[in-house]
Design a protein around this nucleic acid. Sequence first.
DNA 1: ATGGTGGACAATCCA
Length: 257
Amino acid sequence: MKIATYNVNSIRSRIELVKDWLRKHKPDVLCIQETKVQDEEFPLEEFKDCRYEVVIRGQKKYNGVAVFSRIPLEDIETELPKDPLGEARFLKARIGKIVILNTYIPQGQEVDSEKFRYKLKYFRLLKSYFSSYFHPKKDFVVWCGDMNAALEPIDVYDPKGLWGHVCYCREVKEVFEETLKWGFIDLFRRYHPEPGHYTFWDYRIPNAFKRNLGWRLDYILATEPLAKTCTDCWIDLEARQAEKPSDHTVLAAEFAL
DNA sequence: ATGGTGGACAATCCA
């Protein structure tokens, strides 16, 4: 079973890229973030002929998540319980015993802002959701998404210069680590412990991708029983070679299931 | 040097 995650930065601008990726890699599940479209305007008809079920949770202009699946999805939920804002950032679905979670974590704008406090709260709400609904040693849960968080110096291109950024600072590191400690394993790091692997390159830095000035902000995280079945996890840099790439790229994982 | 680019959407907000 192959599961992938991709921040598309507008699904309407990335239709061809997403269709090509689905055709080429045939994932069983693709979680996308930042669809930037309300549900009525999601281009569902573009995906009619590629035999994927599509579950969407969007809003106007910002945020928005969706899940593509070759296998029928059950128990779909579109709201993180107790989320005070209810923005389009969360999708949950189930395939057999595997629970799939797709999140677009708030970026936080700047440290000490209201949005930053909401970001920290969002991680705490997720941890509380995990512990109320799942068992880290018994349940097969995969949590995919753009977490807008880097944990280690090797996860960013300039650890000294960037320390203190909303995506790489003490508060975010602490709360994300605390959430992971509930029982999630970072699958990409398990296979690639070396520095220099990123999933995001800021459009505003000239030639950031070419110079590999990136961040690792996207994750596929699995509970122990599911992580045991994982055979590989990789970043697809080729998705960034497209004519009009997103500022993120695709991260994928393979499971012996 | 306090910018840069890209997306939504229609004057700015967000990343």
